[in-house]
Amino acid sequence: MKDIFAKDSSGEMVSPHEPGYDALIADIFATIKTATEMNTGYRTPEEVHEYMERILGKELDATTTVLPPLYIDYGKPVTIGRGCFIQQCCTFFGRGGITIGNDVFIGPKVNLITINHDPNPENRSATYGRPILIEDKVWIGINSTILPGVRIGYGAIVGAGSVVTKDVPAMTVVAGNPARVVRKITTPGQQ
C-alpha cells in the first residue's frame, strides 16, 4: 500500500481522513514557514536563492531570478530551470508537480495551480494533483492562472489575465478566460 506522499505525488485522491495526512500537512506548513521567512523583509538575491533551495529541496540555478514574495504550498515537486525570471506575488500550488523549463518569464501575480478537489460534495475535502509543464522560453503574463494538468509549449505566450484550462501549443499566443489561441508566433525570416 502506498503512503500518502506517494499517492499524492502520483495524482491519486488523498483525504484528510486517511493515515499520514497530518504528516503531509505538516510538510506543507514547513514549506509555507520557509516561504514566509523569505517574504518578510528585504532579501538579497543570494539569500532568496538559499531560501528557494530549502523550499525546493534541490539546487536553483544561479541564472534564475525569483522576486519575493512567492507564495508556495509545497516545493519538493517543483523544478525550475536556468535563466528564468519569476516576478513578485506569484502563487504556486506545487503538490501535483510543476516543471518550469529554461528561460521562462513569469509575470507578477501568476498562479500555477496543480491541485483540485473531489467534485463529489460528500468528499470535497479530498484532493488530487495534476502536473503543470512549462516548456522552454515561455512567457506568462501578469495575473494569469494555469490550471492542473496543463502543458505550455515551447516559446508560447500567455496573455495577461488569462485562465489556461488546456494545453497551449508551442509558438502560439493564448488569451482570455478560458484561454484560446489568438495567433501563431513567427520569428524573423518566417512567412
Score class of each variant (00 low, 15 high):
residue 68 P to N: 08
residue 60 L to E: 01
residue 138 V to S: 11
residue 145 T to M: 15
residue 50 E to K: 05
residue 167 D to A: 09
residue 120 N to A: 03
residue 7 K to H: 00
residue 136 D to M: 13
residue 78 V to T: 06
residue 8 D to R: 03
residue 3 D to F: 00
residue 98 I to G: 13
residue 93 F to T: 12
residue 174 V to I: 13
residue 64 T to E: 09
residue 88 Q to M: 15
residue 69 P to V: 12
residue 62 A to Q: 14
residue 166 K to H: 11
residue 174 V to C: 14
residue 114 T to R: 02
residue 37 E to M: 10
residue 162 S to T: 13
residue 1 M to C: 00
residue 140 I to H: 10
residue 148 P to E: 08
residue 76 K to R: 12
residue 179 A to K: 11
residue 59 E to L: 14
residue 190 Q to G: 11
residue 60 L to Y: 05
residue 74 Y to K: 09
residue 108 P to N: 09
residue 59 E to W: 13
residue 122 E to H: 04
residue 134 I to L: 05
residue 137 K to A: 05
residue 6 A to G: 00
residue 172 T to W: 13
residue 33 K to Q: 11
residue 187 T to A: 14
residue 132 I to F: 12
residue 118 D to E: 03
residue 44 T to S: 12
residue 107 G to C: 09
residue 30 A to L: 05
residue 146 I to K: 14
residue 109 K to V: 14
residue 108 P to Y: 15
residue 137 K to P: 05
residue 21 Y to V: 02
residue 26 A to Y: 03
residue 60 L to D: 02
residue 12 E to Q: 07
residue 138 V to W: 04
residue 31 T to Y: 00
residue 158 V to P: 10
residue 181 V to M: 01
residue 16 P to D: 15
residue 79 T to C: 03
residue 189 G to I: 11
residue 135 E to D: 10
residue 79 T to R: 07
residue 159 G to D: 06
residue 124 R to L: 11
residue 73 D to K: 07
residue 15 S to L: 04
residue 76 K to Y: 09
residue 54 R to L: 02
residue 10 S to A: 09
residue 152 I to S: 14
residue 147 L to S: 11
residue 113 I to C: 04
residue 72 I to L: 12
residue 38 M to W: 12
residue 31 T to D: 04
residue 103 D to M: 06
residue 149 G to Q: 04
residue 26 A to P: 07
residue 28 I to R: 14
residue 46 E to W: 00
residue 182 V to C: 03
residue 149 G to T: 06
residue 20 G to T: 07
residue 75 G to K: 03
residue 176 G to T: 05
residue 184 K to C: 09
residue 113 I to R: 10
residue 31 T to H: 08
residue 115 I to K: 12
residue 79 T to H: 07
residue 2 K to F: 05
residue 41 G to T: 11
residue 2 K to L: 06
residue 29 F to Q: 14
residue 58 K to Q: 03
residue 83 G to K: 03
residue 82 R to K: 01
residue 121 P to E: 01
residue 4 I to A: 03
residue 103 D to F: 07
residue 25 I to G: 08
residue 66 V to E: 08
residue 180 R to Q: 12
residue 178 P to W: 10
residue 144 S to W: 08
residue 141 G to L: 00
residue 94 G to K: 09
residue 22 D to Q: 11
residue 144 S to P: 15
residue 9 S to G: 02
residue 46 E to H: 05
residue 42 Y to L: 06
residue 173 V to M: 12
residue 153 G to I: 04
residue 73 D to I: 07
residue 165 T to S: 12
residue 82 R to L: 00
residue 88 Q to L: 02
residue 12 E to P: 00
residue 69 P to N: 05
residue 113 I to S: 11
residue 143 N to V: 01
residue 91 T to C: 12
residue 132 I to L: 05
residue 105 F to P: 00
residue 162 S to E: 10
residue 68 P to A: 13
